[in-house]
């Protein structure tokens, strides 16, 4: 079957099997390997991307279900050569080690900050609680999101995101 969707602002059309998972579509068909796969059961969140502005776990979304929708992945965080404050925060606060959960964590963090520019630590922990990191013990991820909150007007970022 044919699917058409917008991925990081670019329209793509491909012929796929109806059962193809979005995570495999992004990775194998589009070569966007920043989105990872980790568990099959929607528990780990390393595959988190945005669909129409909302985080989804792309291992439990079919490419067919994403047809006609707008997808944003980690590759779409950086804009015009400028890192998103969330990306910069993960670097500055050592919010990543092996880097495997990082893209999903950053997508969730960006979503949180767009809606809640100054979250408390508890709100940050709640926001990433559907995702697993085995390296950091979460402490520096919380600090990274806090760094991003301090260093950017999240409303600005949101406008950029929703601009056509």
């Amino acid at each position: 079957m044919q699917v058409t969707m917008t991925v990081n602002g670019e329209q793509v059309t491909r012929d796929v099997e109806p059962r193809l998972l979005l995570v495999h579509f992004l990775r194998d068909d589009l070569g966007l390997t920043g989105t990872h796969w980790g568990c099959d059961t929607s528990n780990c969140g390393v595959c988190a991307v945005w669909m129409d502005g909302e985080p989804v776990k792309s291992c439990t979304v079919l490419a067919a279900m994403a047809s006609g929708h707008e997808i944003r992945t980690v590759e779409g965080l950086e804009r015009e050569g400028q890192l998103d404050p969330v990306q910069e925060g993960f670097i500055q606060e050592h919010g990543l080690q092996c880097g495997f959960c990082t893209p999903g964590m950053m997508m969730t963090a960006r979503y949180l900050l767009d809606r809640n520019p100054h979250p408390t630590d508890e709100e940050i922990r709640e926001a990433i609680s559907g995702q697993i990191c085995r390296c950091t013990g979460y402490e520096n991820i919380v600090r990274a999101v806090r760094w991003a909150a301090r260093h950017a007007a999240a409303g600005q970022a949101r406008e950029e995101v929703s601009a056509p």
């Binding site: 980690v74 990543l96 893209p103």
Partner: peptide, 8 residues
């Protein structure tokens, strides 16, 4: 890594 450009 933050750009999703690691090679696993």
């Amino acid at each position: 890594f933050v750009r999703g450009k690691g090679t696993y």
